[in-house]
């Protein structure tokens, strides 16, 4: 046990650097996913026929295949088409696209939970469709989505570990380096497991706080949440 603590404390500077990369991947991936997820959800519900199929295709393809394979397609596959990306941008784009598909589904269930009635009421006072989506539907959906959406940052944080497989210097890669150096793979991987767990616990606490703060007084609707690795 004390050996393990020695390993842990000796490797702290490395783990810290890895943590920063992991957090970078998580936050940028989440941001891209957010920016993709909302329009994908809106188009899937309100779009014209062809646009709708486009949104469905994006969402279902990225939810129906492993994030790891998506990452490999982008990092190893795209160069075949002349698009070569560095490791970190490739990881960020892959994670963003993946997260966007999952976020789109969270937004979609929130928008659908709000229902046609609110749209009708908005149209009845003369709002256009776009205005109604922007002023009435989305503000409610954004609040409603929070409890279910709160799973996504944690889920994405865990997914970022796959970046290790294209040698992005994240936490997991640092674990491998420490494992090689110390000949103690169990100790090294256990150490980053603990760090991931701490990050997840902190992130969960923050999201729960936001979730509590953002409730609309007197208005309760719950939508479903599911694991989305």
């Amino acid at each position: 046990m004390s050996e393990w603590f020695t390993l842990f404390s000796n490797s702290l500077p490395e783990f810290w650097k890895g943590t920063l990369i992991t957090l970078l991947l998580t936050s940028t991936g989440l941001g891209i996913g957010f920016l993709l997820g909302i329009p994908a959800a809106v188009i899937r519900i309100y779009g014209s026929k062809y646009l709708r199929w486009l949104a469905i295709g994006y969402i279902e393809l990225f939810r129906g295949t492993p994030a790891l394979v998506q990452l490999f397609v982008i990092y190893y596959g795209l160069p075949d088409m002349g698009i070569t990306l560095d490791r970190i941008p490739a990881a960020i784009i892959a994670l963003g696209l993946n997260s966007g598909a999952y976020q789109a589904e969270y937004f979609r269930s929130a928008i659908q939970a709000i229902g046609h009635d609110q749209m009708m009421a908005a149209r009845a006072i003369g709002m256009s469709r776009i205005k109604a989506i922007w002023n009435i539907i989305l503000p409610q959906a954004m609040r409603l989505v929070i409890p279910a959406w709160s799973n996504e940052p944690v889920s994405l944080l865990k997914t970022t570990a796959i970046a290790f497989l294209i040698a992005v210097p994240d936490l997991m890669t640092k674990a491998k380096m420490v494992a090689t150096r110390t000949y103690d793979p169990i100790g090294a991987y256990l150490a980053v497991a603990v760090i991931y767990l701490i990050l997840v616990v902190i992130l969960t606490a923050i999201l729960e706080y936001i979730s509590r703060k953002s409730r609309i007084p007197g208005f309760d609707l719950e939508i479903e949440a599911q694991r989305s690795t």
């Binding site: 393809l61 129906g64 295949t65 492993p66 790891l68 394979v69 998506q70 490999f72 397609v73 190893y76 596959g77 795209l78 160069p79 075949d80 088409m81």
Partner: peptide, 26 residues
């Protein structure tokens, strides 16, 4: 996934290999 990596490495057709894997998963 592993097989696709190996095929990609030996044929230099990574895109095709991984898209095939993706399709099978889907």
């Amino acid at each position: 996934t592993r097989k696709s990596q190996l095929i990609g490495a030996s044929t230099y057709k990574f895109l095709l290999a991984f898209l095939t894997a993706a399709l099978i998963y889907f």
